[in-house]
Amino acid sequence: MSRPRKDLRILAGVVVAAFAAACLQPAQAESGVLAPASAVQAREAKGVKTAVFAGGCFWGMEAVFSHVKGVTSVVSGFEGGSRADAHYEIVSTGTTGHAEAVQITYDPAVVRYDQLLQVFFSVASDPTQLNRQYPDTGPQYRNAIVPQNSEQVRVTTAYLAQIKKSGLWKRPIVTAVEPNRGFFPAEGYHQDFALKNPDHGYIRMWDAPKVTALKRGFPGLWKPDFTRG
């Protein structure tokens, strides 16, 4: 069963939380899994870089990475489909090829790409869930990494191999590495959603615990301020 639409005009946040709690209980990402540091560190040139990750509802992904030092922007949006269909109501049908994703702008002098991957697998999403993340179901909620350059391909490939051997997860890791087909920002009301709606039922139930897990598991990368997209 999929969760209710995120549109605030349809359901109040408390109803969303009650529905989600009835369907599924919080799993790994909510309590946090400390993935190992990457054995292969990213070697990135100076200057701002971009990473794109898909891992379920983009509200939670945005909330996590907006609290990482060195991140200067996080934008919620869509990857994997065409620009023409990159609209929330259409993507939510699960027929467009898109995944909800975030585009992260970061300074590699402060936080490396491999460290962003570690955060992604530790607290931002559960890499063992195929075409879903907790109460959200469908291919638009798949777990995927979209490398933006050859260095990110190198680091991603090595890190996936490393964590698959780690034995930290009881189920197989299904995170896909997808080609860069373009990233398309979501509608304005999705941007900075957790910052603007901290008491929304979905945020409190599923996303606030991820932010708490980030603070607890990565004190060296944690920053208290929310980086606006």
Results as ranks from 00 to 15, higher is better:
69 K>L: 04
43 R>F: 09
219 P>V: 07
131 N>A: 04
23 C>D: 11
7 D>T: 05
81 G>A: 02
63 A>F: 11
50 T>H: 11
25 Q>A: 12
136 D>L: 02
202 Y>S: 10
129 Q>P: 04
105 T>N: 12
64 V>R: 15
91 V>G: 02
39 A>L: 15
129 Q>V: 08
216 R>D: 11
64 V>S: 03
146 V>F: 08
13 G>R: 00
103 Q>P: 03
169 W>H: 03
194 A>K: 13
107 D>E: 14
174 V>E: 05
178 E>V: 15
84 A>G: 05
67 H>W: 13
109 A>E: 08
224 P>E: 15
43 R>E: 09
181 R>C: 10
183 F>I: 14
167 G>S: 04
14 V>I: 06
50 T>A: 08
144 A>V: 11
145 I>C: 04
149 N>D: 06
139 P>S: 01
42 A>Y: 14
84 A>S: 12
199 D>E: 15
172 P>E: 09
124 A>V: 11
79 E>N: 07
224 P>N: 13
185 P>Q: 04
27 A>K: 12
26 P>I: 15
207 D>T: 15
86 A>L: 03
61 M>H: 08
63 A>T: 15
208 A>T: 15
25 Q>Y: 09
159 Y>H: 10
73 S>W: 06
208 A>I: 09
118 Q>A: 01
198 P>L: 02
184 F>Q: 02
8 L>W: 14
33 V>Y: 12
40 V>Q: 12
169 W>D: 00
92 S>K: 09
11 L>S: 10
15 V>S: 10
170 K>Q: 15
29 A>D: 07
102 V>F: 05
94 G>L: 01
214 L>T: 10
167 G>L: 13
119 V>E: 01
169 W>T: 02
126 D>M: 14
93 T>H: 09
213 A>I: 10
192 D>P: 07
110 V>Y: 03
175 T>Y: 08
206 W>Y: 09
90 I>Y: 01
184 F>M: 04
5 R>E: 03
143 N>D: 11
36 P>L: 04
50 T>F: 07
147 P>M: 10
187 E>M: 02
138 G>H: 14
173 I>C: 03
172 P>S: 03
108 P>G: 04
